[in-house]
């Protein structure tokens, strides 16, 4: 009972925030609504006892990805009028996507009504059940090759992103820290013995 109340409360906030993302006039507010969305979906995951995924969602998306997103949006000088111009043009496409999503959701509910258990049991797990250990076990045994493959793809993406944006410019002054640290006194300072001038 309590779980249902919590679910509907957080789901309502999630939907409200999702509407906020597309409805708010200020892009920074939109990004913040998106953060709220992620946070609420994490709570929904907590409710189905997927603690590890929930916390990782907050850690990765809210803690890192959205920070950079916010960073970029704050610095951009976005012309909101221009963004709104295309609304009627893209409205049919948006409506089509919405219809597809509704049909898919209806299909899932319909299959469930037939009495087929597609999502697996949702019986409460024992208190000492560790989500993290379970995921780790599956990830590094059954799915070790897909997992490694995904890691390599990500690595390639990182390398590509750096290769695309990094260029060497001529005449750039940079510091070489190891050379700075390696400097000895003799390289920089010369001790000169000057005979004192004695006034005659």
């Amino acid at each position: 009972m309590l779980t249902e109340i919590l679910f509907y409360a957080f789901a309502a906030v999630l939907l409200g925030a999702a509407i906020g993302v597309i409805a708010s006039r200020n892009p920074v507010h939109s990004v913040l609504f998106l953060v709220l969305c992620f946070f609420n979906s994490a709570v929904l995951w907590l409710l189905i006892e997927a603690e590890f995924l929930a916390i990782v969602l907050v850690l990765v998306y809210v803690g890192a990805v959205m920070v950079l997103f916010l960073f970029v949006v704050m610095m951009l000088d976005i012309n909101i009028e221009k963004l709104r111009e295309g609304f009627t043009r893209y409205a049919p496409l948006g409506a089509l996507v919405a219809v597809i999503v509704v049909v898919e959701m209806y299909y899932v509910l319909w299959v469930k009504r037939l009495g087929m258990d597609v999502t697996g049991g949702t019986a409460p797990l024992p208190a000492d059940y560790s989500n993290t250990a379970a995921i780790g076990e599956v990830l590094y045994t059954d799915y070790v090759y897909p997992f490694q493959l995904a890691a390599v793809v990500l690595l390639i993406a990182i390398v590509a992103a750096i290769a695309l944006t990094m260029r060497r410019r001529e005449g750039l002054r940079t510091q070489d820290v190891s050379r700075q640290v390696a400097v000895r006194r003799q390289d920089r300072v010369r001790l000169v013995k000057v005979e004192p001038e004695v006034e005659q």
Partner: peptide
């Protein structure tokens, strides 16, 4: 006494940065 205590702390401490960015913006 939760299982993923360390992850929980990492996730929460990474949220504090929002306050700082928002305060500045």
């Amino acid at each position: 006494d939760i299982n993923a205590g360390l992850l929980f702390i990492l996730a929460l401490t990474s949220l504090g940065v929002y306050g700082v960015i928002l305060a500045g913006w």
